[in-house]
Simulated scan of single mutants.
Amino acid sequence: MAVRELLTKIGDKWTIFVVLSLDLLGGRARFSELERAVPGISQRMLSSTLKNLERDGMVIREVFPEVPPRVEYEMTTLGRSLLRPTQGLVDWAKENWETVRSSQSSYDTK
Rank of each mutant, 00 (worst) to 15 (best):
L34C: 02
S42Y: 14
V59Y: 08
T15Q: 00
Q43E: 03
T109L: 11
S47P: 11
T8G: 12
E5G: 06
E95C: 08
G57V: 05
D56G: 11
T15M: 02
S105E: 14
E54T: 15
R84P: 09
D23E: 13
E33C: 07
S106G: 11
V3G: 12
R30N: 00
M1D: 09
R4N: 14
E72M: 06
R44E: 02
W92Y: 10
V71W: 05
L46Q: 01
L22M: 02
S21D: 11
G79A: 00
V90C: 06
G79W: 03
P65N: 04
V63G: 08
L22D: 01
K51M: 06
L82R: 06
L53A: 04
G27I: 03
R61I: 04
N52K: 11
W92K: 01
V38Y: 14
T49V: 12
P39W: 03
K51D: 10
V38M: 06
R55M: 10
R80T: 00
R70P: 08
L78K: 12
R70G: 01
E54Y: 11
M1A: 15
E95Q: 12
V90W: 12
W97K: 05
M45N: 11
L83T: 13
E54P: 12
S47W: 03
K13A: 07
S32N: 01
S102M: 09
M58G: 12
Q104F: 13
T86V: 08
R4C: 11
P69Q: 03
R84K: 11
P68N: 03
L7I: 14
R4E: 15
E74A: 01
N52Y: 09
D91H: 08
R28H: 06
E72I: 07
S106E: 15
G79R: 00
A2V: 10
V3P: 05
D91F: 10
L25F: 08
L25K: 01
S42R: 13
K9P: 10
W97Q: 03
A93Y: 10
S81L: 07
I16W: 12
S105H: 13
Y107P: 03
E95W: 07
G11W: 04
G26R: 04
K94P: 13
D12Y: 14
L34W: 10
Q104L: 12
N96Y: 14
R80V: 02
V38I: 09
G11M: 01
L20K: 15
E98T: 06
L82S: 02
T49Q: 06
R55V: 11
G40W: 15
T76P: 15
T86F: 13
T49G: 06
Q87S: 08
S106T: 13
L7Y: 15
A93E: 07
